[in-house]
């Protein structure tokens, strides 16, 4: 039992060992300890969705997960799923639809949208809105974001 905890985990496919403060949340760990600045800190209490990342394949609020609890876990961030090409089409659709304005919410939006496309590839606009409702865009560019997700869903369905 300690204020400093040793963890070994996989981040974007790479093995990482670290000693973290018990109170350090996942996003501070990613940004400050690993230099992965793609995940953003907005509200820091679980409301805004800017810090959405994957833990063991499922999206989570990074600010509501302690790094100390992630020994043995697999973490994937916007940097990782960009590098693998998993969301290239979704990112292209965001650009085509001008779905990123100031860009602050965009990494979280992409993580949440990728999760929806994986689990509900046939999602309707209503279902897209519902799934994305935990991610805030203070530019209020929701229409374009929903457009981009819908475009990607339809394009993937046509290819399948």
């Amino acid at each position: 039992m300690s204020e400093m905890i040793d963890i070994a985990l996989t981040v974007n496919g790479e093995q990482v060992r670290a000693r973290v403060e018990a109170r350090r949340h996942l996003i501070d760990f990613l940004r400050l300890d690993l230099g992965l600045m793609g995940s953003h800190i907005g509200c820091e209490h679980g409301v805004c969705g800017a810090c959405t990342v994957r833990v063991d394949g499922d999206i989570v609020r990074g600010c509501l997960v302690l790094a100390a609890s992630l020994d043995g876990a697999r973490v994937d961030t916007i940097e990782g799923i960009s590098d693998t090409g998993e969301i290239r089409d979704l990112q292209d659709a965001f650009i085509a639809r001008n779905a990123a304005q100031c860009g602050f919410c965009t990494p979280g939006m992409l993580m949440a949208a990728a999760d929806l496309l994986k689990h509900q590839p046939q999602a309707s606009r209503e279902e897209i809105r519902e799934h994305m409702s935990g991610n805030y865009c203070r530019c209020t560019g929701y229409q374009a974001i929903v457009d981009a997700v819908e475009t990607t869903a339809k394009a993937r369905a046509a290819k399948a």
Partner: peptide, 12 residues
């Protein structure tokens, strides 16, 4: 369940 917060929160 669908009324509880959002998918990322329901996962934890």
């Amino acid at each position: 369940i669908p009324h509880i917060a959002h998918p990322a929160i329901r996962n934890r």
